[in-house]
Design a protein around this nucleic acid. Structure first.
Lengths: 266, 266
DNA sequence: CAGTGTGAAATGCTTCACAGCT
DNA sequence: AGCTGTGAAGCATTTCACACTG
């Protein structure tokens, strides 16, 4: 009890690991699918396969929520759906505002996944007066001036930012000042927020870059040691940045661990 | 997932932790911004702040790449941009195909962040014949029939799936069969792929659900023990699922650790 | 039995703190 | 003097393996 932790007193039992929380929506989705097919129960093995994780992890995850299974049988689908929904806070209604109704914002507004899970788009907001009044996803876009009023009137505590990077921090500040305490950020910027405000970010290009890293590595399979220049898919070089090449010469760079100095224009 | 022999014994020096790889794009973004402002060098402290991480972590991350800094001074911005780009594989050109040009697909096609970082959209593909030939982001949408041909002709190894959930696995299979080995999946489904193919997923509603979890918890701040029903922002209950309530009664549920049975319709 | 729930071991990641270089 | 680079300590997460239960 009273685990003298600095971040979050976590009374006693409410210590659900962040990694587990991040997987609950996944389980929920798999369970919802089963529920729609009227499957009454699942084993940890089956559900884990459907959610794309391993079964030991799933059982451990569920153990943080309580003992919701039946030994020798498995889990009751409907019951688990309810428990996880409740744990995630989806049994209540979450009004959200979306700021920045460009291509991405419109796509998000049209995205069905929100409404189906307790989220309700209370307003679409854009700073461009030309957008005001336009209908997106069956909803009139409102001007940024209305932001505070809308947040207040609807008791909004979650905001979604889909503006260009340059506007994001400013929008964020206004959201926070108006009472929003959770932000989902699609703009490619680091947002700074006061303590007590949560920010999660989704950066589309970051994901691709991570894939590129692994993809590049695949090409260099088989033999290592000679990291020289394995060229993938016919693309040889494309010389990243000329300035970088210049800067490179003035430094005593050292490869990974005394390895080859890597491909670099002398 | 059967970790066959895929999971890299790390020949010796090439053991860059996954967590580090995931942060490299972040550093790169911060560095690019500095570079544009013609800042010549940064300290780990400054760069860490710009990237939103702590400086010890950043230094440790960089140490996996090599010794690219100068003690007493910091890191040369241009040089580091180059090194990270190279490590991520961004000094080469990555042709990608995007499948599913709905709202989200169009948003992605228009998203500037790709082109700026070595990625080149080789083709936009949609299964709907009505979309064929339409121009999106200055590019003609092509029909799904062309998929294999396009992948082959362009040497595409990265695919982006932005189709509805129902079509995703099928599209995925075709991509893989045609030679794609990295997939970025926006459809809310678990994709199964053969060994050697990487999948990363972005699920918009999952992120919101995680925020909701933390948001819900904030409301219960101050006193614990009585988890009864702290109502947030005026939203009282909204009784999740009637079916779940029914299912609930037939089970000897046990709260987190013998805690209150939680709010639940008798 | 079959399948959950969970201590305990293994692995991975972050943070500390300081030696060592410029 | 200042700041990087890194062992070692501290946490968090995953995996193992098996006692326990319906």
């Amino acid at each position: 009890m009273a685990t003298g932790r600095t971040h979050r007193p976590a009374t006693r039992s409410r210590g659900i690991p962040e990694a587990t929380v991040a997987r609950l929506p996944l389980y929920l989705r798999a369970l919802t699918a089963l529920s729609e097919r009227s499957v009454p129960t699942v084993s940890s093995e089956e559900l884990a396969a459907a959610a794309g994780v391993n079964s030991a992890k799933l059982r451990k995850d569920f153990s943080y929520l309580g003992s919701y299974g039946t030994r020798g049988v498995g889990y009751d689908v409907e019951y688990l759906v309810y428990q996880i929904s409740r744990e995630l806070g989806l049994t209540q209604d979450w009004p959200i505002v979306m700021v920045g109704i460009g291509n991405l914002g419109a796509a998000l507004a049209n995205y069905g996944g929100f409404a189906s899970r307790g989220f309700r788009v209370a307003a679409l907001i854009d700073a461009d007066p030309a957008m005001t009044g336009k209908s997106v996803a069956g909803m009139a876009v409102q001007h940024a001036d209305e932001l505070e009023k809308i947040i207040d009137a609807n008791g909004v505590s979650i905001g979604v930012i889909a503006t260009p990077a340059g506007a994001a921090q400013q929008v964020c500040d206004r959201l926070v000042a108006a009472g929003v305490t959770s932000i989902l950020n699609f703009a490619p910027t680091v947002l700074s927020v006061p303590d007590g405000v949560d920010v999660r970010k989704v950066d589309l290009s970051i994901e691709l870059q991570i894939l590129a890293f692994h993809e590049q590595r695949k090409a260099g399979e088989g033999q290592e040691e000679d990291v020289a220049d394995v060229d993938v898919a016919g693309a040889v070089d494309a010389g990243g940045s000329a300035a970088a090449a210049a800067a490179a010469t003035k430094q005593t760079r050292k490869g990974p661990d005394g390895d080859v100095p890597a491909v670099m224009p002398a």
